[in-house]
Design a protein around this nucleic acid. Structure first.
Lengths: 131, 131, 131, 131
DNA sequence: GTGGTCTAGACCACA
DNA sequence: GTGGTCTAGACCACC
């Protein structure tokens, strides 16, 4: 459970938390039913406003990545449901397009991008989650 | 020179303009030294405030994608210089990682993502810009 | 944190802010991680529109002189990176040439110019920034 | 009489003309009473709007650098008068300060700047103009 | 509280 | 005609 939060980045803090939780889940570092630190704990650990952590948790729960059990804490969900939301698909497509074009302008070759992608998929690929 | 601006999207209007100009350049729809619509023209065309268009143009100029000639207008730059800015590279890497992880959560397979990527590169690949 | 903004000058207001922030940094009056006045504060202090201050701050951030932390404010950057941008070098050279020639036409001797330069460098020289 | 005008630069075209005329005078390339090209000639030569050349000439005349003799043309003035205008002096000081600070931020050492300055003064120094 | 985005409308310098 | 600067005032996201 190591978070790497950088307030200097453009990405909102709560977004950084969301991404890192999802990343750790995808990589298998966090497994279903595993307990997450409480809002207080985490906010103390990464020196951040508790409201920010809370917001991240709420969003993660809304997406079905984690679940809160009153009085017990928050846990990684075990029954994640894929949501083929067409708007999300489109937004992903846009994001990928932006990466392709921007990398083109930075002078990064296609091979490089694909190397990155392979790396990311390798990190995930190990434990393909059934659902 | 058709722009497709949607104020309902989360992406700022000026960012949408930037992306679309870059996309059209990369695809070869816009060629070096070609004139862009004037700030006023474009703002009238896509029904947007001139300042917003101006902001987009200034950012594009800062990135070296376009150049403005005083009193004459704005043009696609002819001598685009790749900038291997390490911060940009890193941010691209992050963006790609986000796409990979988020697509995983939406239930999109790796093959699908790679198909998209191939499409985007095909659209660009035709006229690889020298310099 | 005293700013000396003069709307009557030819130099744009936001440029004056940029120059003075950079000057204060170079002189060591502003030190890394120090907080700058908020956009609203500064705009009230020097009786100027907030957007103008914002523009100055954004440019300073783009140059890597300051950094903004979302919801917290703007701070002097701690890890300033020199950018040996050849275009900037050239433009500086031009600016210096202009000073030399114009001073020649105003009747200022070379010794005078060099005296000024020594003064400026003395003000900076004290705390040469490492990194 | 070779002009090097670049409409892509930030400096206004008429300013570029002014600077280059002054530079050529200071260097001795243009000597007192030498004839300048007519507005038409010059505007044709450097492919520019005649009004722009005209504006430059008017300003140069105002500064006393050149003189127009009706029906004969424009010539380099022979009796240039130094004008110790305090506002100009101050603006030069500001410009020099800006060069010093900006060069500091670009990572150029003092020695480099002084080397430039020496170069510029050498180019002028040959024929110190008496007045 | 912070900065970021956008609008509307004004004025100016430049070509 | 072009873009550049500035103002006033609104709304929003983030912390």
């Amino acid at each position: 459970m190591y978070f790497n939060i950088d307030p200097k980045k453009n990405i909102p803090l709560y977004e950084q938390i969301i991404q890192q939780v999802k990343e750790m889940c995808a990589k298998g570092i966090l497994t279903p039913n595993e307990k997450l630190p409480s809002v207080r704990e985490l906010s103390a650990q990464i020196v951040i406003n508790p409201n920010t952590v809370s917001k991240a948790y709420k969003e993660l729960e809304r997406q079905g990545v984690i679940m809160t059990i009153r009085g017990r804490g928050t846990f990684i969900a075990e029954d994640y449901q894929y949501t083929h939301d067409p708007r999300k698909v489109d937004s992903l497509k846009q994001a990928l397009k932006k990466v392709v074009i921007d990398s083109h302008y930075v002078g990064i070759e296609r091979e490089e991008i694909e190397k990155w992608m392979s790396q990311f998929y390798e990190q995930i690929g190990g434990e393909k989650r059934e659902s």
